[in-house]
Simulated scan of single mutants.
Amino acid sequence: MSDLTLVAHFNAFTGQLQGGYLMARSTKRKIGATMTPRAVLDYMLAHPNARVEPIKA
């Protein structure tokens, strides 16, 4: 099981995906650069069993 979680940012007013990043669940630290909405969707397609934590921003 992977220690990575995909954190996805959604706009609270429009409900649109704004971007995201990968986070290490054990340390709660961001891994790598901030992802564009397209990169978030591509990651979700490539890793269908990934854990995703939505955050309204």
Results as ranks from 00 to 15, higher is better:
F13E: 14
P54C: 00
M35W: 04
G19R: 11
L22M: 13
G15L: 06
T14L: 04
R51I: 10
H47K: 05
P48Q: 01
T14N: 05
G15Q: 11
T5N: 08
M23L: 09
K28W: 01
R25Y: 07
H47N: 10
L4C: 03
L22S: 03
T34V: 04
P54Q: 00
V7G: 02
A50Q: 06
T34L: 07
T36Q: 15
G19W: 08
A46N: 14
L4F: 01
L6V: 05
E53F: 01
Q18A: 12
H9D: 13
R38H: 11
G32F: 01
T14G: 03
R25Q: 15
R38F: 10
A39Y: 13
G19S: 06
D42N: 14
L22W: 14
R29L: 14
A46P: 05
D3T: 13
T34I: 05
L45T: 08
S26Q: 11
L45I: 07
L6A: 06
G20D: 05
T14R: 12
Y43Q: 13
L45P: 01
G32R: 06
G32A: 03
N11L: 09
A24W: 06
P48F: 08
N11W: 11
A39M: 15
P37A: 04
K56Q: 10
R25P: 02
A8D: 06
N49S: 08
D42P: 05
V40E: 12
V7Y: 04
A8H: 09
A12Q: 09
S2G: 06
A57T: 07
Y21Q: 07
L41A: 10
F13P: 03
K30H: 01
L22G: 02
V52Q: 04
P54F: 02
Q16R: 14
Y43P: 10
S2P: 12
H47D: 00
A24N: 15
D3G: 15
E53C: 00
S2L: 06
I31D: 00
T34P: 01
A8Q: 13
T27L: 01
G32E: 03
N49F: 12
G32C: 03
N11R: 12
N11Y: 11
H47P: 00
H9T: 02
R38L: 09
L17E: 05
A50H: 15
P48T: 03
D42C: 11
V40H: 12
P48Y: 08
T36G: 07
K30G: 00
A8F: 06
R51L: 13
Q16P: 01
V52E: 00
L6M: 06
K28A: 06
I31M: 02
I55Y: 00
F10P: 09
K56G: 02
H9I: 01
D3K: 12
A12W: 02
D42M: 12
K30A: 01
R29H: 10
A46M: 13
D42L: 12
Y43I: 10
M1Y: 03
K56A: 12
L45V: 10
Q16T: 04
A39G: 12
L6R: 11
